[in-house]
Amino acid sequence: MTPVAAFLRFFIAGILQALFFQHLVLANGWLTPSIHVYGLAMLPLGRKPWVYLVAGGVMGLLQDFAAASNGLYTATCLAVGFLQPSIGRLLAPREGYEANTEPTAAAQGWTWFSVYTLLMVGAHNLILFGLEAGRWGLLLRAEGKALTSVALTFGLVALVHLLFQPRPRSR
């Protein structure tokens, strides 16, 4: 995957969330999609850590602008960008990743892809909903919503990935 393709995927995921998915809040907030995390998760592995941090900041600003919120998404996506290299390292093979390794199901397998995406979306939702709750009394309920929303987002991400992922070359 070229950097241009990664950038396009990042940008399209952000725009889709800003224009469509942020309006698609179901079950009184218990199912809230965060498809923009897919754009962050699909950035090539093995890059410099600051790349993920800056990408997170840019994605957060875009979502804050679309959702008319003050810094909530920026703070969340920055934290996800900070955690992303650690999540990648957690799932890395013994020899590590090569630069520009694709974090796709085709390249890493569905198990790896599922765990990686769930960790990314989980971190995003737990931080976002926790910050938004704003008080300890509401935290438990907010994190419950975060976890149910992880399931929805993962379902959407898996569907998109299944439809648009590059096919593995046949031998």
Binding site: N70, G71, L72, A75, L78, F82
Partner: peptide
């Protein structure tokens, strides 16, 4: 960066 973002949100 996070302090700036959280400060923005908290403000």
């Amino acid at each position: 960066f996070e302090a700036l973002a959280l400060g923005w949100y908290a403000s």
